[in-house]
Amino acid sequence: MNRFAWVNPGSVEEAVAALGARAALKAGGVDLMDLLKERLIAPERLVNLRAIPGLDGIEERADGLHIGPLATLARLAEAQAVRLRYRALADAAGRAATPQIRNVATVGGNLLQRPRCWYFRSEDFLCKKKGGARCFAQDGENAYHAFLGNAVCAAVHPSAMAVALLALGGKLRIVGPRGEREAPLEGFFVTPEQDVLREHALGPQEIVTEVLVPPPAPGASSAYLKQGEKESYDWPLAEVAVLLEREGGRCRRASIVLGAAAPVPHRARAAEAALAGKAVDEAAARAAARAAVEGATPLADNGYKVTIAEVIVRRTILAAAQGSGT
Rank of each mutant, 00 (worst) to 15 (best):
V190N: 10
V47G: 12
D91G: 00
V211D: 02
Q80P: 15
T209Q: 02
L237I: 15
Q322F: 08
V82T: 08
A24L: 11
Q322H: 13
P263A: 05
A62C: 03
A74N: 08
P192V: 05
E78S: 15
F189K: 06
E272I: 04
E44R: 15
D56T: 09
D56G: 15
D195T: 12
L166E: 04
T326A: 15
I58F: 06
A18F: 06
A254R: 06
E199A: 01
E206Y: 10
A77D: 03
G259R: 06
A97K: 12
I317Y: 06
R198Y: 00
P215I: 04
E78Q: 15
L32C: 09
E245R: 10
F147K: 11
E123N: 01
A273S: 10
F188K: 06
D91A: 12
A309C: 13
E14W: 00
A283P: 08
I207P: 07
G303K: 07
G131C: 03
E180C: 04
G295E: 05
A42M: 07
K278L: 13
V82S: 04
L258Y: 03
L275F: 08
F4V: 08
G131K: 01
I308F: 04
T98I: 14
E272V: 08
R39A: 15
W118N: 08
E123F: 00
L185Y: 00
I317K: 02
A270K: 15
A241I: 04
A217E: 08
G28T: 08
E199R: 07
A274H: 01
A90N: 10
S255G: 13
L318F: 00
A93T: 10
L168W: 01
P204M: 05
C117A: 07
L112M: 12
E229Q: 13
G132C: 00
A300L: 10
A287W: 09
L112E: 02
L166H: 05
V293S: 10
A321D: 11
K128H: 02
K226W: 01
A283Q: 07
K278E: 15
S232E: 08
A238V: 12
L165V: 01
V16I: 14
L148G: 11
A96F: 12
R3P: 14
R95G: 03
